[in-house]
Amino acid sequence: MKLKKYDKFIAILFVILTISFIVLAFSNRDFLDWAFARHHNQLSWYIRPVFLIPFCYFAFKRSSAGISITIFALLTSMFWFPEPDSVSKQVQDFLQYEVEYLTGDWYLAKILVTLLIPISLILLGMAFWKRNLWVGLLVLLFIALGKILWSIQSAGESGKSIVVPAIVGLVFCITLVYWGFKKLSKKSNESISK
């Protein structure tokens, strides 16, 4: 309960940290290159979707702080792992495309497509905030399929390198989110009936 009163303060703090991280990544090419060198480690590809589980949990619990901490962790997880000794050509080409995408010119269509990321997270958060499991699972499916389709459509053959991590992440997330939602809903219903 004590943490609940600091929820908004913590949320604002992590929103500021997240924005600072994004600004640093876009304004400092050395930092971006350093981060993407570590993002070549595919462990970061597998761990990133897992952050959607605590995101959904904190939305269900209506914790803005939990949501903002999870988003910060999700973004920074790209460089949590050491730079790998060897990387497949497909992974290398795909991440090179992503760096070029991020550092290239920003035109209206690109901005609109990129805005799908925060929009999908807002929709995911709203679904679980309102405790709508099926809409939440549908948004999770949309996020995974959107990432796969965008990767293959935009980066071609190298974009296929994201398929396995995205599908593994999707199955893992849907399974745990479904189980957790049912467990939390049952617990909530039991406490209401007492």
Rank of each mutant, 00 (worst) to 15 (best):
residue 135 V to R: 09
residue 8 K to A: 11
residue 149 L to D: 11
residue 76 T to Y: 05
residue 15 V to S: 11
residue 135 V to K: 09
residue 117 I to C: 04
residue 1 M to I: 11
residue 112 L to N: 04
residue 130 K to N: 13
residue 21 F to H: 14
residue 40 H to N: 13
residue 6 Y to F: 13
residue 148 I to F: 03
residue 57 Y to W: 13
residue 71 I to H: 01
residue 117 I to H: 07
residue 48 R to L: 09
residue 189 N to I: 10
residue 133 L to H: 01
residue 49 P to I: 01
residue 128 F to M: 04
residue 153 Q to G: 08
residue 172 F to Y: 11
residue 66 G to T: 05
residue 154 S to A: 14
residue 173 C to T: 10
residue 172 F to E: 06
residue 147 K to V: 12
residue 29 R to T: 13
residue 117 I to S: 09
residue 148 I to P: 01
residue 122 I to M: 10
residue 36 F to E: 04
residue 100 E to W: 09
residue 124 L to F: 00
residue 104 G to Q: 01
residue 192 I to Y: 12
residue 174 I to P: 00
residue 20 S to C: 10
residue 95 L to C: 00
residue 174 I to T: 11
residue 53 I to R: 09
residue 182 K to W: 07
residue 68 S to H: 07
residue 165 P to H: 04
residue 115 L to H: 02
residue 119 I to R: 05
residue 51 F to E: 07
residue 133 L to V: 00
residue 50 V to Q: 08
residue 184 L to Y: 13
residue 21 F to I: 10
residue 174 I to W: 09
residue 176 L to P: 03
residue 45 W to A: 10
residue 161 S to Q: 04
residue 14 F to Q: 04
residue 87 V to C: 01
residue 98 E to K: 14
residue 131 R to Q: 15
residue 98 E to D: 12
residue 185 S to I: 10
residue 29 R to H: 12
residue 179 W to N: 10
residue 110 K to A: 03
residue 42 Q to M: 15
residue 78 M to K: 13
residue 14 F to D: 04
residue 144 A to H: 00
residue 66 G to C: 03
residue 114 T to F: 08
residue 53 I to P: 07
residue 193 S to R: 14
residue 44 S to L: 08
residue 155 A to K: 02
residue 164 V to G: 05
residue 19 I to L: 14
residue 85 D to V: 07
residue 147 K to S: 15
residue 47 I to R: 07
residue 122 I to N: 03
residue 46 Y to P: 02
residue 82 P to G: 12
residue 186 K to Q: 14
residue 45 W to C: 02
residue 44 S to C: 07
residue 147 K to A: 14
residue 145 L to F: 13
residue 127 A to C: 06
residue 95 L to K: 09
residue 148 I to G: 05
residue 189 N to H: 13
residue 63 S to Q: 05
residue 52 L to T: 12
residue 47 I to E: 09
residue 173 C to W: 02
residue 153 Q to M: 13
residue 13 L to P: 08
residue 181 F to E: 00
residue 69 I to S: 07
residue 18 T to Q: 10
residue 5 K to T: 11
residue 15 V to W: 07
residue 10 I to N: 03
residue 16 I to A: 11
residue 26 F to Q: 15
residue 57 Y to A: 07
residue 69 I to G: 06
residue 49 P to V: 01
residue 64 S to Y: 14
residue 61 K to H: 09
residue 163 V to R: 04
residue 116 L to P: 00
residue 170 L to D: 00
residue 62 R to M: 05
residue 1 M to F: 11
residue 119 I to T: 10
residue 141 L to T: 15
residue 31 F to V: 13
residue 151 S to K: 01
residue 57 Y to V: 13
residue 87 V to Y: 03
residue 35 A to K: 06
residue 127 A to R: 00
residue 9 F to Q: 09
residue 77 S to N: 14
residue 39 H to T: 00
residue 81 F to W: 14
residue 132 N to S: 12
residue 51 F to L: 06
residue 117 I to M: 08
residue 119 I to W: 09
residue 133 L to P: 00
residue 51 F to Q: 06
residue 91 V to K: 06
residue 82 P to S: 09
residue 135 V to L: 15
residue 128 F to T: 02
residue 194 K to S: 12
residue 92 Q to L: 10
residue 126 M to N: 13
residue 158 S to Q: 05
residue 166 A to P: 01
residue 134 W to T: 00
residue 52 L to P: 04
residue 76 T to D: 06
residue 17 L to V: 08
residue 160 K to A: 13
residue 157 E to K: 12
